[in-house]
């Protein structure tokens, strides 16, 4: 862990620059931060991506990407539309492979273990790495309660001490939705407003206690007020779960994330990781000219 040692000095500055004041607990439990890719974080729920390529048939939608996603932190993926950021994030919980003809090359490690290993079932991966989608997609035939409990009912409750009711309540509290819905848990989830539906989907994903929560443009279908509520929520959740959020909204990325990855489409129309660094660095002093052009709004 020599790299870890050399980066300790810079780490302090970064953390205080981003979120240390809000999350002192995280600071203590995640010493593995670095702005250098390929360094493995030791906080639980960390991901390491090694030379990942994503294909649809013979079309390579994502060119080799290598990056380390820190545990219990918020990582934002930004970039112009069509840059492969959604495809990339869908590889992280093996949702990509459900598309027609889709496959990947390279490796993704969750806390050091290959999620595409020969004995690994995507069903298990997706329980550990949850996902929230662009449009809120509560199950219309289920009540609010049953929506949150859906994952629990199939996976079973891990700890014997807690009842289903308690876990559902906790998940709804984590998603900052409890106070709004506690009196109408039996009502249909689709009766809620768009922002509430999205928080319901977040509660649904949190109820199974994932290590990582992937968010694919979770606010793209929401109004500004609902968007702010989700952003607050993301900040609050970070100490408990690793969050990777894809967004086309740069302000959002700068508000919520600790680190930011910038993707762009290359000449072969394939997505490419241009720059990955702390959010402060990417938005104020990017190393790459293209990143600078994008974050300053010169294109994209």
């Amino acid at each position: 862990m020599t790299q870890h040692d050399t980066s300790t000095a810079t780490k302090e500055r970064e953390v205080s620059g981003t979120s240390a004041t809000e999350h002192p607990a995280v600071q203590a439990s995640s010493p593995g931060q670095s702005h250098v890719a390929h360094v493995e974080s030791t906080a639980p729920g960390s991901l390491r991506v090694d030379d990942l390529e994503a294909y649809y048939g013979s079309f390579r939608a994502v060119s080799p990407v290598s990056m380390a996603i820190e545990g219990r932190k918020v990582t934002a993926i930004i970039g112009p539309s069509g840059c492969g950021k959604s495809t990339f994030i869908r590889c992280l919980n093996r949702m990509h492979e459900t598309a027609r003809g889709a496959h990947i090359r390279g490796h993704i490690y969750l806390d050091g273990e290959d999620i595409n290993g020969p004995k690994v079932d995507p069903v298990v991966i997706r329980r550990k790495i949850g996902m929230v989608f662009q449009k809120p997609n509560p199950f219309p035939t289920m009540s609010i309660y049953d929506n949150v409990a859906a994952g629990l009912k199939i996976n079973g409750i891990k700890s014997k001490e807690r009842s289903m009711d308690e876990i559902v309540e906790q998940a709804l509290r984590q998603a900052a939705l409890w106070d709004e819905v506690k009196d109408k848990l039996k009502q249909a989830g689709t009766a809620l407003s768009g922002g509430q539906q999205q928080r319901l989907c977040i509660a649904r994903a949190l109820a199974v206690e994932p290590e990582v929560l992937l968010m694919d443009e979770p606010c793209s279908a929401l109004d500004p007020i609902a968007t702010l509520a989700i952003e607050d929520l993301i900040r609050q959740l970070a100490p408990q779960v690793t969050i990777v959020i894809v967004t086309h909204n740069m302000q959002q990325a700068s508000r919520v994330s600790d680190r930011t990855a910038f993707f762009m489409m290359n000449a072969q129309r394939s997505g490419e990781l241009v720059e990955y660094d702390t959010t402060a660095k990417v938005f104020t002093n990017p190393a790459d000219k293209r990143t600078d052009d994008y974050v300053t709004g010169r294109f994209g």
């Binding site: 919980n93 949702m95 459900t98 069903v123 298990v124 991966i125 997706r126 329980r127 550990k128 949850g130 996902m131 989608f133 449009k135 997609n137 509560p138 199950f139 859906a150 994952g151 199939i154 996976n155 989907c201 649904r204 994903a205 199974v208």
Partner: peptide, 22 residues
């Protein structure tokens, strides 16, 4: 909608659970 099926898949559901519950 595909989003409905993906929502269930993302919770760690098996193929049958997606079909039966969603």
């Amino acid at each position: 909608p595909a989003a409905q099926k993906e929502g269930m898949l993302a919770l760690g559901a098996t193929r049958w659970e997606v079909m039966w519950k969603v």
